[in-house]
Simulated assay, not measured.
Amino acid sequence: MSSSSSGAPLPIRWAMILVIAMAVGTLVGILTYLETGTWPATLLAAFGAAGAAVPTLHKILGP
């Protein structure tokens, strides 16, 4: 089992990316629910936004 160089189970950079992506997904989900009032549309928009945020934040935050 390999360990990371910092010794943390999850590097701080990736933790930040995932937390920000969750916040983006939550915000989009709330706004979608307020607009449409349907759960399927809310979940689709929230998961889509969170999924799109991860690679975008990975590029923006860089190594």
Rank of each mutant, 00 (worst) to 15 (best):
S3F: 13
S3D: 14
S4A: 13
S4L: 15
S5H: 15
S5R: 12
S6N: 11
S6C: 07
S6H: 09
G7Q: 03
A8L: 14
A8V: 08
A8E: 13
P9I: 09
P9S: 07
I12Q: 11
I12D: 11
I12Y: 09
I12N: 04
R13P: 06
W14F: 13
A15V: 10
A15F: 04
M16F: 10
M16I: 14
I17A: 06
I17K: 05
L18P: 00
V19P: 00
V19Y: 11
V19D: 07
I20Q: 05
A21N: 01
A21W: 03
A21T: 02
A21E: 03
M22K: 06
M22L: 10
A23Y: 00
A23T: 04
V24F: 03
V24M: 01
V24Y: 00
V24E: 01
V24L: 09
G25P: 02
T26R: 05
T26P: 02
L27M: 10
L27Q: 06
G29F: 00
G29L: 02
I30S: 07
T32D: 06
Y33V: 01
Y33R: 11
L34Y: 10
L34H: 09
L34V: 07
L34Q: 08
E35G: 06
T36W: 14
T36C: 12
T38Y: 15
T38L: 15
T38C: 07
P40L: 09
A41K: 10
A41H: 12
L44A: 11
L44D: 08
A46G: 05
A46D: 04
A46M: 10
A46C: 08
A46N: 06
G48M: 04
G48A: 08
A49S: 08
A49C: 05
A50N: 03
G51F: 12
A53R: 01
A53G: 03
V54S: 04
P55R: 04
T56K: 00
T56I: 13
T56R: 01
L57N: 00
H58Q: 14
H58T: 14
K59H: 14
K59A: 09
I60W: 11
L61G: 01
L61E: 03
L61Q: 00
L61Y: 05
G62L: 06
G62I: 02
G62W: 07
